[in-house]
Nucleic acid binder design. Structure first.
Length: 300
DNA sequence: CCCCAGGCACATC
DNA sequence: GATGTGCATGGG
């Protein structure tokens, strides 16, 4: 007999929707006010409540530490926000995205997911990962209408897949990167668990040695899976945010933005970065791109 | 038709 | 060391 379990996490200032849909994790699906995903091989449903977050699993669970840790329930939002730079752009981003949190994800799933993320929109990343889980993951019991879902595939499983099979999941040119990285993790050539005890620069170098992993993806994994809060993933959205909010819209070169982000946002820069990312993507009015064609037609 | 997307590897200067 | 380009695929 295996019955579902339920619990309530007491937590304040936690915007569940913003957190689960902010491009740090890719498996969450919304159904009404509930959010569902497979975390650590377990199907789980979360629901925002006045007192905190209600969680339900499809299978019995009497120790919720794994989920508390994933959601970072113990983090006090105020103590995080207090470490942000005291400037107007950050104040505005915090006002607009209050309650946005960083998750603490499993390293392998996080690494594999972000290898698949390059030059893709978030909805497409979600689609690729869903394809991958359906094809290579293990079936797990779920409480939704479908009755089942799939775990994120282990590195061994992806290492033994063919490049063509991965491409069939729409992984595109990322397929060989994912496959080779999966092989190195499965073979023990790289020990993802060991990174947690390393200084951030050493851990980053371990990740940078993997195919398909550059500075941006390495920083995503350092921040979202290991909790190195000084890691500052610099992607196109964050670069847009920095140029717009800190460089008066000037076309500052990447090098300048790298230096600025490394020195200005401090030891919790990664958290600030997530606020800028979410703020830029969801709250700032969409600036209509100066269309070259329209410009040319006017010149005639 | 165009440009862009939570980039990276590789060639070239 | 800096800069340019190809890479799959889908959205707008």
């Amino acid at each position: 007999m295996s019955l579902p379990s339920r619990t309530l996490f007491s937590v304040r200032e936690y915007d569940l929707a913003a957190t689960l849909a902010s491009g740090q994790a890719f498996r969450w699906r919304q159904s009404g006010d509930a959010w569902r995903a497979v975390v650590g091989g377990k199907w789980v449903q979360l629901r925002p409540m006045a007192e905190g977050i209600e969680a339900a699993t499809a299978s019995p669970c009497n120790d919720w530490v794994w989920l508390e840790n994933y959601l970072q329930i113990q983090v006090e939002f105020q103590s995080v926000a207090a470490l942000f730079p005291a400037d107007e752009p950050m104040r505005e981003a915090v006002r607009a995205c209050r309650g946005l949190r960083l998750l603490r994800q499993a390293p392998w799933e996080c690494l594999a997911s972000f290898i698949l993320s390059s030059t893709k929109q978030i909805t497409q990343i979600q689609q690729i990962i869903e394809n991958l889980c359906g094809k290579f993951g293990d079936k797990v019991k779920a409480l939704d209408a479908r009755g089942s879902d799939y775990s994120f595939p282990q590195p061994e499983r992806l290492a033994s897949a063919s490049e063509a099979e991965l491409r069939a999941c729409k992984a595109g040119f990322r397929a060989p990167y994912l496959r080779e990285t999966a092989r190195r993790v499965a073979s023990g050539e790289v020990d993802l668990r060991a990174l947690a005890a390393m200084p951030v620069e050493t851990a980053r170098n371990q990740l940078l040695a993997l195919p398909g992993v550059g500075r941006k993806i390495a920083d995503c994994v350092l921040l979202f899976a290991y909790g190195f809060q000084e890691a500052f993933p610099l992607d196109v959205w964050v670069m847009k945010a920095l140029r717009e909010l800190y460089f008066q819209g000037r076309p500052a070169p990447i090098k300048t933005l790298q230096k600025f982000s490394a020195s200005y946002f401090g030891p919790c820069g990664g958290y600030a970065q997530q606020y800028l990312f979410h703020y830029m993507r969801t709250k700032l009015p969409r600036r209509r791109p100066e269309n070259a064609r329209a410009g040319i037609s006017l010149v005639v």
